[in-house]
Amino acid sequence: MATEEVNKPSSHPQYSEMIFAAIAALNDKYGSNKSAISKYIESQYVDLPAAHSDLLPIHLNRLKESGELVLVKNNYMRPSPNAPPKRGRGRPPKPKVPLPPGHVSSPPKVSRPRGRPPKPRDPNSVPTPKISSGRPRGRPPKKAKPAGAAATAKTGPPRPRGRPPKVRAPFASAGFD
């Protein structure tokens, strides 16, 4: 029973056609807002889907993004035919100059690696062998202490980590008995 309702063809046209018809019928100089378009569509077409209030803004935004509608002060209108086309964001690409016929293109440039280029090697110099001191580079690893070494070296438990707590001096009598 539920599949019959889903598969039933709708008797209303597509949303874009209904929106264009609503804007043309309302014929407002400054365009029509979303609620006026919705009321007109609801009055003209009886069997709209239950999600009409959710579908209408989606279709209005899609038409606005494609340039078929213009949004001016929360009013939708058709763009004027002599208006300049809407530019995208960012810098426009440079126009490509067509190559003359018979021109052979050169292979593409190889990009340089990042960073500073290495110094040129002197062909007359003799390479010097690297001398190692026997020690590895860097800081040596920390030596592990035996498990009970800290407690046996001093009397008492090992010191806790962090800064020691502040010691407050005891109050002295002020001499008022």
Rank of each mutant, 00 (worst) to 15 (best):
N75P: 01
H52G: 03
P79E: 02
K34H: 14
S111P: 06
V126E: 06
H52S: 12
V110L: 06
L55E: 11
G67I: 07
S132T: 14
G115A: 08
D122T: 00
V97D: 10
P98E: 08
V70N: 05
V104N: 03
Q44C: 07
D47V: 01
S105Q: 14
K73Y: 10
Y30R: 15
K130R: 13
P100Q: 06
K64Q: 10
K130Q: 09
K96I: 15
P84Q: 08
N27R: 14
R114S: 09
P85Q: 03
R91C: 01
P57S: 13
N75G: 02
P57R: 11
P93M: 08
N61L: 10
H59L: 11
E42C: 08
S132K: 13
V72Y: 07
A50H: 05
K39S: 11
S132W: 07
I131K: 11
Q44I: 02
E68F: 13
P120T: 10
L71V: 09
K86F: 05
V110T: 10
V97G: 08
S43Q: 10
I58R: 15
S125M: 01
R89K: 15
S111C: 07
Y76H: 06
N75R: 15
Q44N: 12
V104E: 10
L99T: 10
V70Q: 09
S132G: 13
R89T: 05
R87A: 13
P123V: 00
S38T: 03
P49Y: 04
G90F: 06
P98G: 06
V104P: 00
L48F: 01
P92Y: 07
N82W: 08
V72K: 15
R87D: 05
R112W: 03
V72H: 12
